Simulated assay, not measured.
Amino acid sequence: MIETLYITRHGFRSSWTTGDRSNRDDPLSDLGLTQAQDLATYLGSLEDNKRPTAIFSSPYHRCLQTSRAISIALEIPIYVDHWISEWYSDLTANKRVKQPEPPSADVLHGEFPEIDADAWSSLWYPPSHGENVAQITERMGTFLAKFIPAVETTFAPEKHERVLLVTHAAPVIALVRNLLHENEAESKTYCKPGCCSVTEFERNPDPEASLTWLPKRIGDSTHVSGDVREWGFEDYY
């Protein structure tokens, strides 16, 4: 059974350094690679019974590069799930900006051999036509409802009690809102995730409680060097 959920955002994007936003699947910048290593070092410093034992990553390069540093440091596998891919906003869709369609885990394994393409396949693929805030929030809610039991069924129950999700800012916020049972109108939790920040939830030991997951920290970036570029939906709309 999953007992701890770690959630992080990828490191600093190369496009933020160059100013060229034409490649929406751009890799990490040099700073981003350093931040990924910062995160890997931090997670590796945790006690054995606190470290994540598996990484579930968005298929975008910046997330996989972040995941790779952690995978190597902790000697744990990467599983790719397109369900936690980047948010393609409704406003961007109206501008007819093409959203990239990252390939499957089998293809990505050629570049990232740390990916285990045989043990896990994406549960779902996000829409290419764009989503508003309510829709990305719904996407992450459906993901959580299906992902957690799927992991517990696919792997031995005791194998992955602590998992790490490596994704993007918008999905991080939407995941937090779902875990706290908050929506856009009622959200009271400050969540503007920075690059390689750590959000941590633990399963509530009280099965009768209203919240299944208890927040231990949200958007902690004290272990990350350089500009973490915090982001929230209010910075976009």
Rank of each mutant, 00 (worst) to 15 (best):
S104I: 06
Y88Q: 11
T92F: 01
A93C: 06
S89E: 02
D106V: 11
T92P: 00
Q99T: 04
H109Q: 13
K98W: 02
A93F: 03
K98A: 14
D90G: 07
A105I: 11
R96E: 08
P103D: 12
T92N: 11
P102N: 10
P103F: 01
E86C: 05
N94G: 02
W83I: 04
V107D: 05
S104D: 14
V97Q: 08
D81L: 09
S85F: 02
D90W: 00
S85D: 15
E86W: 05
V107C: 00
H109I: 00
E86T: 04
W87T: 05
R96M: 06
V97K: 04
E101W: 07
R96N: 13
D81F: 08
E101G: 07
P100L: 14
T92H: 02
V97D: 04
L91Q: 12
L91P: 00
Y88W: 09
S89Y: 01
A105R: 07
A93T: 03
H82S: 15
K98E: 15
Y88G: 09
K98S: 11
W83G: 08
L108F: 05
P103S: 14
G110N: 15
D90N: 12
E86A: 10
D81W: 07
L91S: 09
V97S: 02
N94T: 05
L91V: 08
P103C: 10
D81Q: 07
W87R: 14
R96F: 05
A105Y: 04
W83Y: 15
E101V: 13
L91R: 07
D106C: 00
I84Q: 04
W83C: 12
A93H: 05
H109G: 00
Q99N: 14
P100H: 13
K98F: 04
K95W: 01
V107L: 04
E101F: 06
N94E: 03
D106F: 01
W87D: 12
E101N: 14
K98Y: 03
D81T: 10
